[in-house]
């Protein structure tokens, strides 16, 4: 609510409070690092390692390690349809968003109808259906964050990037959107930027975070 008397929570918009843990320790980055492109073990190959910036790449998606990953994923489901969410995830990771062509390729790979794939892809909000900035800034404004100033944080990011909601900034770096609860309500306001959660973000932090990302 932005008044001075309120004690801030520990978290990782650069405020670690009185904790003797480093940010890396809390986030576990030292433990996992980035997942390999081929997905590692089949049990976890459906896990998107990271949301990567959009790439202007032509040609098929499911080649090389991406194809290997899809093959691994297919071993974990009873039918090809079961691999649809992971396959869309891989396509999304490879292209940064799901173009009609990407949906068609996924449909072909999984022997599904393109219209069906589109229906599924549009049901889930995390699949971008058009290109977004290199950094997709998703600000939670749901109740817990909202009570603690989420809407101000959203405005701060919109101002700092100079974009409207959902637009790509002129330099292609940023897209700011409002999202529903991100599941870290004890650390408001929560901002997800690509694969990373920024917690306890205050409106004043927006500029600094953007600098960090550039």
């Amino acid at each position: 609510m932005g008044d001075g008397g309120v004690q801030k929570n520990p978290g990782f918009a650069g405020i670690t409070g009185d904790f003797n843990l480093t940010e890396a320790e809390v986030r576990g980055t030292d433990y996992v690092g980035q997942r390999p492109l081929d997905g590692g073990h089949p049990a976890v190959a459906g896990t998107m390692p990271y949301q990567v910036p959009p790439k202007a790449v032509d040609g098929p998606i499911f080649v090389g390690p991406f194809e290997e990953r899809l093959e691994k994923v297919l071993t974990r489901y009873e039918d090809r349809r079961g691999a649809l969410l992971p396959a869309l995830g891989i396509a999304h990771e490879a292209r940064g968003y799901l173009s009609p062509e990407a949906m068609e390729e996924v449909a072909e790979r999984l022997q599904l109808a393109p219209a069906y794939v589109r229906g599924v892809a549009t049901f889930y909000t995390m699949y971008n259906l058009r290109p977004v900035g290199r950094h997709l800034i998703q600000v939670c404004t749901n109740i817990s964050c909202n009570l603690c100033g989420g809407e101000d944080v959203l405005q701060a990011f919109l101002q700092a990037t100079g974009t409207g909601m959902g637009e790509v900034s002129a330099d292609g770096q940023f897209t700011v959107i409002e999202v529903e609860c991100l599941g870290a309500c004890g650390f408001p306001t929560v901002v997800q930027i690509n694969d990373r959660f920024f917690e306890n973000v205050q409106p004043a932090d927006a500029g600094r975070i953007l600098e960090e990302l550039r």
């Binding site: 590692g40 998107m48 995390m126 694969d195």
Partner: peptide, 14 residues
Amino acid sequence: GEFFEPAQILAKAI
């Protein structure tokens, strides 16, 4: 899907 970070930790553990 938003839990990329916990998912990575869990993936490693699996």
